[in-house]
Amino acid sequence: MIEVRELTKRYGDTAAVDGLSFRVEPGHVTGFLGPNGAGKSTTMRIVLGLDAPTSGEALVNGRRYATLPRPMRAVGALLDAGAVHGGRSAFDHLSCLALAGGIGRSRVAEVLEAVGLTGVARRLVGGFSLGMKQRLGIAAALLGDPGVLMFDEPVNGLDPEGVRWIRELMRALAAEGRTVLLSSHLMSEMALTADRLVVVGRGRLIADTTVRELTGRYPTLEDAYLALTAGSVEYGAAR
C-alpha cells in the first residue's frame, strides 16, 4: 500500500506538490492522472525517497521508503526508462541491481524472459529503442517480486503489442493482490487498464475515484479527465 499524507514539495516559490493526500490500495490498478507539471513524477520520486518533501510524508507499507529493510523486495518502480547507463548490457544492468538488492542472479534471466529481452540481454542498452528500454525498466521493477509497483508512463514508445502486454501485465499484477500505481496520458488505455483513479492538477488532488464512476457520469474517460482538469493546465508550474 502507498500512502501520501499532506505532501508538499516546493522549488523556490512554486509548489510542485501542494498538500496532496491519497492512498493506493492493493488489488487494483490505480491510474495516476494529471496534466504535465501536475506533480505526478515529483510525488513518485518522493515516494521512492529520491526527493525529500518540503512537508508531509509518503509511506510504503507504513514506512518511509529509505527505512524499508529490503526495498527492492517491497517496491518496484519504473520512473524513467532512459535512466540507465547506455554502455552496459541489459544483463549487466539488471545484475547490478539484483546484486545490490541481494536478489539471486537466476532471477535476472527470469525477468529478461518475462519482458521478452532474453535475445538482446548481452547487447548494450544504449542501442535499445525506447520500447525496449521500457521493457528493461519493467524487468528492473519486477526483479525483487515486489508487492508494490509504480510505473510512470510505461507505454511510451511501445508498439501496439507492447501496449497490450503492459495492460495485461498491470492487471495480472493487481489480480495477484499487488498495489499498482500507473501514470499515463493515454485516457483510452487508462480506461482499459485501471480500476481506480487519482487525478491531480497543480500539485493538488482533484479526484480520488473509480473509472466506473467517471465513465458513468461522462461519455468517455477522456471527457471526464478534460472536464476535471480544466483550469489546472499550467505549464512551468513545476519541473
Binding site: 525517497g49 524499508l68 526495498p71 532512459g82 535512466a83 554502455g87 545490490a100
Partner: peptide
C-alpha cells in the same frame, strides 16, 4: 556517469 544517464535514480531506488 550515473548522473549524466539518470542511472543514479535507478541505483538509489535499489539502495536508498
Amino acid at each position: 556517469s550515473e548522473y549524466a544517464t539518470g542511472m543514479i535514480r535507478t541505483s538509489l531506488v535499489a539502495v536508498p
